[in-house]
């Protein structure tokens, strides 16, 4: 099995991991970091990290390698992301094509705003509440509603 081979440091398994997941992860990375050079850096960092920390997969609570890698991809992407004012517009080609962007676009305005700040920007509930001048409990509720919508979105489209 791939995980066992990765744990023992099998280099062919590492190549297989890259070949299997790089495309899907890169697609999501481009939705988070629409600048290609930075998205490239994120992918390199994620795979280097995964080779070193594959032993933590079993205790991560994830059942698939993809979502384990996706979680780390988002963490690195948030660190690599440029402020929106620094974007020129030409880099945003991938933004409306990805699954997360598709989901984002079907949300009501309040959920869109909270989901964007939470998922794409990596802001905490407290920070979002302060930014939007709303109580934390309300932000929590909005995010929960967004997650319910995400569940329905996934079930409807990829069940």
């Amino acid at each position: 099995m791939l995980i066992e081979r990765l744990v023992i440091g099998d280099s062919a398994a590492k190549e297989l991991l890259y070949d299997r997941y790089a495309g899907a992860l890169y697609n999501i990375t481009l939705q988070l970091v629409p600048v290609k050079e930075r998205a490239n850096e994120v992918v390199v960092k994620v795979f280097h990290w995964s080779f070193l920390h594959i032993g933590t997969f079993r205790t991560s609570g994830h059942r698939t390698l993809f979502t384990w890698l996706l979680r780390k991809t988002r963490e690195f992407a948030i660190k690599e992301a440029l402020p929106e004012t620094a974007l020129t517009g030409t880099e945003l080609m991938k933004q409306e094509e990805g699954i997360l962007q598709q989901f984002y676009l079907i949300l009501p305005a309040d959920q869109q705003q909270v989901f964007r700040l939470s998922y794409f920007k990596g802001l905490s509930i407290t920070t979002i509440a302060r930014l939007l001048a709303l109580p934390e409990a309300q932000i929590n509720e909005i995010l929960k509603e967004a997650m319910k919508s995400f569940r329905q979105f996934l079930k409807k489209t990829w069940n």
């Binding site: 790089a22 495309g23 899907a24 992860l25 890169y26 697609n27 999501i28 481009l30 998205a39 490239n40 992918v43 698939t64 993809f66 979502t67 996706l70 991938k94 094509e97 990805g98 699954i99 996934l154 489209t157 990829w158």
Partner: peptide, 12 residues
Amino acid sequence: LERAAFDEPAMP
């Protein structure tokens, strides 16, 4: 989620 992401991969 994996299926959704694999539906439109973009190779680096």
